[in-house]
Simulated scan of single mutants.
Amino acid sequence: MSYLSPLLSLPGAVAGEEPDEGVAAHYGDLFREQRALADGTGFVDLSHRGVVAVSGEDRLSWLHLLLTQHVSELPPHQATEALVLSANGHIEHALYLVDDGETVWAHTEPGAQQALIAYLESMKFFYRVDVADRTEAYAVVYLPAGSIAPTPQGVVARETPHGRELFLPRERLKEFADAHGPAAGVLAHEALRIEAHRPRHGLETDHRTIPHELGWLGSAVHLDKGCYRGQETVARVHNLGRPPRRLVFLHLDGSEVRVPGHGDPVRLAADGPDGRAVGFVTSSARHHELGPIALALVKRNVPADAQLLAGEDTAAAQEIVVAP
């Protein structure tokens, strides 16, 4: 990745790895950074994420036809999230958006904005909208829930129960860091995301993931609207109540040196380490209070009380995120 955040010059900064290249994984003390965020202090540099802006008088009614979320009457400054699905209902994009009264601002996974914009441009037709890639001009900055740091004047913010996300002009990023530190890395941000059972596109998803498997129906899909691509699959699976897989939260054995990573298999403990995989680890972290934790996607018919093995042979107790 060619992008390098200017905050990688801060003391102790260690660069992140894919998909979080270009920003700091941590600044020398992972658990201190987690505790600071949990206490409502500090911030996280997410300036590697893609930023898309949609303006024009038809922006909300137009996006309403394309996204899984009900946004035609979205009030200014109210944060929401939405998905773009394939014709078969598989997740293609996850957007975290807010309307400032004139423009819808959204951030996406790093590098995903180009494909998203290409899709949006192909669907403009006669609608009075303008779609722009604002990634080079704006950086996403996360402030934890409870933060007393003010939103800088003129900066658009997404206020959510999990924290506040700023669309900050890039030239103000270093100034913001100097005023509102200490900085926390993306590993601390990820640990708290996993603890909160919040899925992330590209980690909790693969080419066939549908929203029901991840619990995204509650936050990113509005079940009382139609007219978007993939809606038939959403309605059918919701009415039948039988998504093929389900997201689980894993408490991992803390005596293991290595924490299983993305893509590592999940097996039934009763079948042993040579048993058939019933799922895979999607995200993992070392948490400052819970120890090693993970999210995993497993087959729907895996018993809710089954003990699991993650990776080679790490014992894992599951906590239900999406009911079987």
Rank of each mutant, 00 (worst) to 15 (best):
M1T: 11
M1R: 09
M1C: 10
S2T: 14
S2M: 12
L4N: 12
L8C: 03
A13T: 01
A15Q: 14
G16R: 09
G16K: 13
E21G: 11
F31T: 13
R35E: 14
G40D: 12
G40S: 09
F43M: 04
F43H: 07
V44S: 04
D45M: 06
V54T: 10
G56S: 06
E57I: 09
D58C: 04
D58Q: 02
R59M: 08
S61R: 15
H64W: 02
L74W: 01
P75S: 10
P76N: 09
Q78D: 14
E81W: 07
A82E: 09
S86C: 04
H93M: 09
A94C: 09
Y96A: 04
Y96V: 04
L97T: 13
T103V: 15
A112F: 11
A115F: 09
I117K: 06
I117W: 05
L120S: 12
F125K: 05
Y127D: 15
D130R: 10
D130P: 01
V131E: 11
A132L: 12
R134Q: 14
T135G: 10
T135R: 06
I148F: 06
R158N: 06
H162P: 01
L166E: 09
R172G: 11
L173R: 13
K174T: 15
F176D: 01
G181P: 07
L187R: 15
I194C: 00
P199E: 04
P199A: 09
T205I: 05
D206G: 05
H212P: 06
E213Y: 07
G215S: 06
L217I: 14
G218N: 15
V221N: 04
R229M: 14
G230R: 11
E232A: 08
H238R: 11
P243Y: 14
R245M: 05
G254K: 15
V257F: 06
V257C: 04
G263M: 00
G263P: 01
D271F: 02
D274A: 14
G275Q: 11
R276T: 13
A277H: 03
G279A: 07
V281Y: 00
S284W: 03
R286P: 02
H287E: 01
H287S: 08
H287R: 03
A294G: 04
P303W: 03
A304L: 15
A306F: 02
Q307S: 15
L309W: 10
G311E: 00
A315Q: 13
A315S: 14
E319N: 08
V322R: 08
A323F: 03
P324T: 12
